[in-house]
Amino acid sequence: MEKFTTLTSIAAPLDRANVDTDAIIPKQFLKSIKRSGFGPNLFDEWRYLDHGEVGMDNTKRPLNKDFVLNKAEYQDAKILLARENFGCGSSREHAPWALEDYGFRVIIAPSFADIFYNNCFKNGILPIVQDNKVMDELFDFSGEIIIDLESQSIHANGKSYTFEVDVERKRRLMNGLDDIGLTLQYSNDIKDFEKNYFKTYSWL
């Protein structure tokens, strides 16, 4: 998992509440045997004018020009702004996979669905909660935003805002540790265990 310290990027404003995981990545894409490559189908039903299916050449599909991610000014956005209850609906981990694959590293919203919020951290995405007043200010600002995880702060339009993040999750993101990376910190314990184990149970 990529380390997260600071991020400077413009933010794509998705001005909707209750964006569910089926909107983030529609269920027909779950048949895939992959966990990468979902980026082109992120928000598929909003992004394209036709119905998306697995195996289509997405570069040839008609775009919905009114959708935020299709606007020229947001092409390089690594930050997504959204409204209440982002990531609700089924617990599919494909949702953070798709967001991450598209290139988003930070999502700022007034609230998130629980499982989605947890899954973000597991996949290198930082979900940030801000109240509606701050959200309105961020939605109104179109310049670059700086996210500093160390100091837990957002800098935009000459103003600074702070955010909360669990200490352990912060450590994991800053060190680029996913669940496996965390366990591999105990590699020596595992090796010591094995040495002893295979001596005791020599037939293994």
Binding site: M1, I33, R35, D178, I180, G181, D189, I190, F193, E194
Partner: peptide, 30 residues
């Protein structure tokens, strides 16, 4: 943290696991 002697693998629940390993540049432990 529990040591696993045997992991049995079939085609339905393993593809994303292998891909995850590959993406992170990891090798099977044993």
């Amino acid at each position: 943290l529990i040591y696993i002697d045997r992991q049995l693998i079939h085609e339905v629940t393993s593809p994303q696991a292998f891909e995850g390993l590959e993406m992170a540049g990891r090798k099977p432990w044993r």
